[in-house]
Simulated assay, not measured.
Amino acid sequence: MTITMKTEGTAATLHVEGWLDTQSSPDLGKAVKALPEETAALILDFKKLEYISSSGLREVVAAYKKMKDKNGTFSVIHVGNEVMDVFRLTGFDKKLDIRSAGEVIR
């Protein structure tokens, strides 16, 4: 898995590529912890994410909680069909701002 961070003002986007599984999910946690303190908006861009496991889901929820505690915003964008199926099966699509690959960001 590869994570690339892009910041713009107080917004940070983490581009996650590959598999977010038991072995790689701690890397997402480290990337979220490494965000600048002033980060008020976090976007996880899953355009190139192929797979997510339960440990990956746990890190997504941890990132969401961190931003909620800071009164910030959190979104997951460009989610492919297979990963979106996991979000739907777990009900996360009802709790988090998750957008499929075809949805327009407003």
Rank of each mutant, 00 (worst) to 15 (best):
D85Q: 14
V32G: 02
D21P: 05
M84E: 00
K33V: 01
R58S: 09
K6W: 11
K94A: 07
K68Y: 07
L42Q: 02
K30N: 14
Q23W: 13
D27M: 07
S100W: 01
V16T: 05
L96V: 02
P36A: 05
T39G: 06
L35K: 10
K94S: 08
R58E: 02
D21R: 08
V32F: 04
L57G: 11
T22C: 11
D21A: 11
L89M: 15
W19H: 14
L96S: 00
V104E: 10
D45Y: 07
T7R: 13
S54G: 04
G9H: 03
T4M: 09
Y64D: 00
T22P: 01
A11S: 13
A62R: 04
H15P: 01
M84A: 03
D27Y: 11
L14W: 02
S75I: 04
S54I: 14
E50Y: 01
R88V: 15
R99H: 08
K94F: 00
K48A: 14
G18T: 01
T73G: 12
P36Y: 07
D93A: 13
F46K: 03
S54T: 13
E37H: 04
F87E: 10
G56R: 15
I43W: 08
K33E: 15
G18N: 03
Y51G: 02
D45F: 05
A62T: 03
E38W: 09
I52Y: 10
S54C: 12
D21W: 06
T13G: 05
L14I: 06
K70D: 04
Y64Q: 01
M84G: 00
S55W: 06
V61P: 04
V16S: 10
H78R: 12
A40V: 01
G29R: 02
K65M: 06
L57Q: 12
T10R: 13
A40I: 00
I98A: 01
A34N: 12
D97F: 06
L44A: 05
M1P: 10
S54F: 14
V76D: 09
F46P: 09
A34P: 01
G9F: 11
K70W: 03
E37V: 04
R106N: 06
S100N: 08
E8P: 04
E103W: 05
E103R: 00
K65G: 09
K6T: 14
D93F: 09
S53N: 10
F46H: 08
K66Y: 00
M1V: 06
A62Q: 03
K68L: 14
K70N: 10
L89D: 00
S75M: 13
K33Y: 01
A62C: 05
G91F: 11
V32N: 00
V61N: 02
A101W: 05
H78E: 05
D97L: 09
F92V: 04
N71M: 11
S53W: 08
L57I: 15
K95Y: 01
I105R: 10
L28I: 04
S55Q: 13
T7V: 07
S75R: 15
P36D: 06
M1C: 07
R58W: 12
L28D: 03
E103V: 12
T2H: 05
